[in-house]
């Protein structure tokens, strides 16, 4: 046991062992990975504004609560259409001489994952209000407010991007909320967060740990109303609000809406699946249904929920009806 009593042997041996392990479990895999992974062909480089926005995202420490990785397990499916792969991050290089590479994969989800948020929730109006005060659109949110990315102006120019913040969240200040350059850059970055498609013939990895038990239970219960409510909460509520009344000047109400209660099912399904931008007084709606891969059952449940809540009482639809319309709507979307 001489080695334990000789500082000239003990410490170099321990150090060398650690260095060797470090080399094989950290340095070598990291270098190999850098070498062997290329960005996907569909990956777009960040625009100037989006790059600036990413720097703001880094500076504000958003990664502390929002991850950017879709794991290959079923529960992460809500955050992206396929599991993330090393190539998704291959285009990200060192931020600057002073700052390290920021893959921003994160280790905590106090808030939702943002890998694909550009597809899921890229609306300009919603995001700007949300940044000014998240609780203006999502009452239960605990995200910080980023008011320093906005001005409050009495007089606005034609160039100003005005944000329609409800009076309740103005904290007694008068004037209009105008987005600063930084807010728009951050918005550009959020909108740029989209999963790139895999090239042609490559199939994405499978999601593991499928929820077989849960889907059986649902099928057994026979009712789709609970399902519809959950779908609404997860996908629609942040804009149209829990009470279905929307947000004045930003998102239209569904309560008493002509589309929801009317007979034009084609239009209704089309809006859910492919989004909507026909009314100037409201924000643009993204293709929520397509992005979230809604099937006809889910769309039917959602429509039935919206048609039977907040005092709405329109005729219920069946899954078969919706399936026909969806096939048609998909075609028309492709043609467009």
């Amino acid at each position: 046991m001489n080695v334990f009593n000789d500082h000239k042997k003990l410490y170099p041996i321990a150090g060398l062992l650690f260095l060797t392990l470090t080399f094989f479990t950290a340095i070598l895999p990291a270098l190999q990975n850098q070498k062997n992974n290329a960005p996907l062909p569909g990956t777009k480089a960040l625009s100037g504004d989006a790059m600036q926005g990413k720097l703001i995202y880094i500076a504000e420490g958003c990664v502390g609560c929002h991850s950017q990785q879709v794991r290959n397990i079923e529960m992460d499916k809500v955050f992206g259409s396929r599991p993330g792969i090393a190539s998704d991050y291959a285009h990200i290089t060192r931020t600057s001489f002073w700052q390290n590479t920021a893959t921003l994969m994160g280790t905590e989800r106090t808030g939702p994952d943002l890998t694909d948020v550009g597809n899921r929730q890229g609306g300009k109006e919603w995001n700007l209000i949300h940044l000014f005060n998240p609780r203006a659109v999502v009452a239960q949110s605990i995200m910080p407010s980023y008011q320093w990315l906005f001005y409050i102006k009495e007089k606005t120019d034609s160039n100003d991007v005005i944000v329609n913040v409800p009076a309740k969240f103005m904290q007694g200040q008068s004037g209009k909320v105008v987005a600063k350059k930084e807010a728009l850059q951050l918005l550009a970055y959020i909108q740029s967060l989209k999963q790139s498609p895999l090239p042609g013939d490559i199939k994405p990895m499978e999601f593991l740990y499928k929820k077989e038990v849960a889907s059986k239970e649902k099928a057994g219960s026979g009712s789709t109303s609970a399902d519809g409510k959950a779908l609404y909460t997860a996908n629609c509520q942040s804009c149209h609000q829990e009470n279905g009344e929307g947000l004045k000047g930003a998102f239209p109400p569904l309560k008493g809406s002509a589309v929801v209660n009317g007979d034009n099912l084609n239009l209704y399904v089309d809006i859910i699946m492919n989004g909507y931008d026909a009314r100037a007084e409201f924000g643009v709606m993204s293709a929520v249904g397509t992005n979230m891969h809604f099937n006809e059952e889910q769309v039917a449940a959602l429509i039935n929920y919206e048609r039977s809540t907040w005092g709405n009482s329109a005729k219920k639809v069946t899954t078969e009806e919706i399936k026909k319309i969806m096939d048609f709507v998909k075609l028309s979307a492709l043609n467009n």
Binding site: T22, T25, A26, I27, P29, A30, L31, N33, Q34, N37, A86, Y89, A90, H91, I92, T93, R94, F97, W98, N100, T101, A102, T103, M105
Partner: peptide, 17 residues
């Protein structure tokens, strides 16, 4: 921390370590 490597997922491998 050495400022001349770790691109892409390499950063995350080193991060775990």
């Amino acid at each position: 921390y050495l400022p001349f490597w770790q691109n892409g997922i390499g950063e995350t491998i080193v991060q775990g370590y």
